[in-house]
Design a protein around this nucleic acid. Structure first.
Lengths: 219, 219
DNA sequence: GAAAACATACGGCGGATGCCGTATTTGGAT
DNA sequence: ATCCAAATACGGCATCCGCCGTATGTTTTC
């Protein structure tokens, strides 16, 4: 007989979180011992609570992309990380796995996948939602050139770049951003270009969509 | 003793829906009798199932803004509509209420609000999540000039405009959108311009931020 | 059946963006 | 003290965008 698993549940939507908690509680041998609504709270819970499993919503405020997963992986090497998100982009899936996630679930997937994922990672395995398996099926022919540089390095942003990303999320154009930060337009442009380069984004729409999904303040 | 309430649960994320179902099932005198993952399925359920209550996620595919609520209100005048969404924009809140919603809940709200909202609408009342009450509190001093034009008409978008808004939320530039929809670039541009005019948005960043916050499908 | 709304398509103009350079200054790490 | 990353600033060029027109066919609505 196995001992019971303990899980931390991290999702910024309290109502959704409550529902997930019930869903998990209905399973055998697993209990939710802590919850978090943002990245900072989650780090606090990880310090004060010992758990086997983390159910992590990637859309949370303060959870800045894959860096966050890598950080957790460093802090708690034996913690099993189950990513649960609405995002089905192949790049995100690969990045999450490279950063150290043990499973990747999508919110539109079958609820039974949650149980399957927990079972898989409990035994040291990996689980991918059916909706994203295609994302890694072609990893053999595509991942080689970009592996080390783009995926494993979760693109550390500088302070200025983060400030600009935040203002972009609020729907600002570069001219306004420059004014707000008290720097020249060319400089703001350069920061923005560097930012987009690091994130492999190629236009305003992609950049803004990325910034908003990170959960930055709703200007 | 009241008879038990019946509810239809509409949310495109199956896992979230399952959690919500458990959450609702834990309440007294209410049971989920049908579920839907998109607008079309929901309309089918409304035709074939008689229910007292609808829990509606505004981010669903095929649930095109407030027109959809108005449609439901017409089809089932006595149905109580509880909107449950991540969107906290005052305009959206007012528009949902104007279109006929009986309650407006946000996903980041306290789970107890769900019970409170159900209780309120059961008795013919209205419920607003704490996080959005400010949105209508100033309706007295602000609603007069814009009431008829902007609030009551929650800027009805055409089908094409909605399609384009959705693709914008995915980070597409106009050229790609035109190609995807099989129309010319000038046409796609025109639709986009009309869309921005209706929403009073003035650049790509604002439009994208708006679209993403509406909870449109994440890529 | 007439009127209104919608979808289609095109052109011009000015500004903003994406991408490519270069270069100086500054602050922190070694 | 030295080195390096970061922040600052500028220019050019092709493209995209925002805003302004116009126009025609289709669909919906009254």
């Amino acid at each position: 007989m196995n001992r019971s698993l303990t899980a931390i549940l991290a999702d910024d939507h309290a109502i959704v979180r409550e529902g997930l908690k019930l869903l998990i509680s209905a399973m055998d041998n697993i209990s939710v011992v802590a919850e978090a609504a943002d990245g900072e709270a989650l780090l606090g819970q990880l310090r004060s609570t010992r758990a086997d499993l983390l159910i992590l919503d990637l859309g949370m405020p303060g959870v800045t992309g894959m860096q966050f997963i890598a950080t957790i992986r460093t802090l708690a090497p034996r913690l099993r990380i189950v990513v649960l998100t609405a995002n089905v982009e192949p790049r995100t899936v690969r990045a999450a796995l490279s950063a150290g996630a043990n499973a990747y679930l999508t919110k539109d997937g079958d609820p039974e996948e949650l149980g399957a994922a927990i079972e898989a990672v409990k035994n040291g395995g990996t689980y991918l939602a059916k909706t994203v398996r295609f994302a890694v099926s072609d990893i053999g022919r595509e991942s080689e050139p970009i592996a080390a540089q783009e995926i494993l390095s979760p693109v550390p942003l500088t302070r200025r770049e983060r400030q600009i990303l935040q203002l972009v999320a609020q729907g600002m154009i570069t001219r306004d951003i420059a004014e707000r930060l008290g720097i020249s337009l060319p400089t703001a442009r350069k920061h923005r270009e560097n930012l987009m380069g690091k994130l492999s984004l190629h236009n305003t729409a992609e950049l803004t969509a990325y910034a908003v999904r990170l959960g930055l303040p709703t200007g």
